[in-house]
């Protein structure tokens, strides 16, 4: 069982393992690599599901949460492969914490280097495929995106991050459609808070290239799980047999994180039991 922990509480050794696995994954250029995985969401595959995507006209037909759960699970599996370690997990970032509301993005993610090496949690070097035409993007946004770039962020002020109260009022919504739309909106807000005017997180085609994308979606997946754990909260049956393309999983198969081999904890402290 992989335990997904808060990035601020991650023991140094686990942070190093995570960075090494991520660097390794970033160096793989085939279908097990970082670029391929990020490319499922935006450029070039655009398989992501937001809002009413796939809609049967029903306010409960929302694939945003289960689709991104499958996506993150898929990513984590390849990350574990790259690091040759099945206990490696994607951490989450609690933007409501006091530290975040002072410091903003945690240092583990915002330091450009660690021990003299590039910090793979800070940025990723992207080479866009030839199929991409940036003319309309640059015209519309006023940004100057090139075909090759290092992902970057333009974070807003930490005091503008969502509060604990906002998250609590989201978690107290009883209806799945309400909750999904509410959590998706706060997710959009964080994308914009991190990316600012021209940062990669602000736009669907580029966002998944920024390593913070995975940490952000881990936070969102955790909120989804916290909501599921409250008595009486369930996913609507109409979603169960939907296929979460391109992953070989249906919604039914991602309802329970335990069945996917992970859980959430704020921290984990283990000591040796003395049995060899």
């Amino acid at each position: 069982m992989a335990i997904r922990k808060s990035i601020r509480n991650l023991p140094e050794i686990e942070l190093t393992d995570l960075r090494n696995a991520l660097s390794q994954m970033m160096s793989i250029t085939d279908n097990r690599g970082y670029e391929y995985m990020a490319g499922i969401h935006g450029i070039p595959q655009f398989r992501c599901k937001h809002g009413e995507a796939g809609s049967i006209a029903d306010p409960n037909f929302r694939l945003f949460l289960p689709w991104h759960r499958a996506f993150l699970y898929w990513f984590e599996k390849y990350l574990q492969d790259a690091g040759h370690n099945t206990s490696i997990s994607v951490p989450w970032w609690d933007w409501t914490s006091e530290a975040s509301r002072i410091e903003g993005i945690p240092k583990a993610l915002s330091d450009s280097t660690f021990n003299g090496n590039n910090n793979p949690l800070f940025s990723y070097h992207v080479k866009l495929p030839k199929s991409v035409d940036l003319t309309s993007f640059n015209e519309q946004t006023g940004c100057r995106k090139a075909m090759e770039f290092d992902t970057h962020r333009e974070p807003d002020s930490p005091g503008l991050l969502p509060t604990k109260e906002e998250v609590e009022s989201l978690l107290s919504l009883r209806d799945y459609g309400d909750f999904s739309d509410g959590v998706e909106d706060i997710h959009n807000r964080i994308h914009g808070w991190i990316g600012g005017r021209c940062g990669d997180m602000s736009y669907v085609p580029f966002s998944a290239f920024d390593p913070i994308f995975w940490i952000h979606h881990c936070t969102i997946d955790r909120l989804f799980w916290l909501w599921q754990l409250r008595p009486g909260n369930n996913l609507p049956l109409i979603l169960y047999d939907e296929v979460l393309d391109p992953f070989s999983l249906t919604v039914r198969q991602v309802i329970n994180p335990y069945e996917l081999g992970y859980d959430y904890a704020s921290q984990q402290v283990l000591v040796n039991g003395g049995i060899p």
């Binding site: 450029i43 937001h50 991409v132 035409d133 940036l134 309309s136 993007f137 015209e139 519309q140 946004t141 940004c143 909106d185 706060i186 997710h187 959009n188 807000r189 994308h191 914009g192 602000s202 736009y203 669907v204 085609p205 966002s207």
Partner: peptide
């Protein structure tokens, strides 16, 4: 909040 595409790529 809108998480946009920024135009067509």
């Amino acid at each position: 909040h809108i998480f946009g595409h920024g135009g067509c790529v």
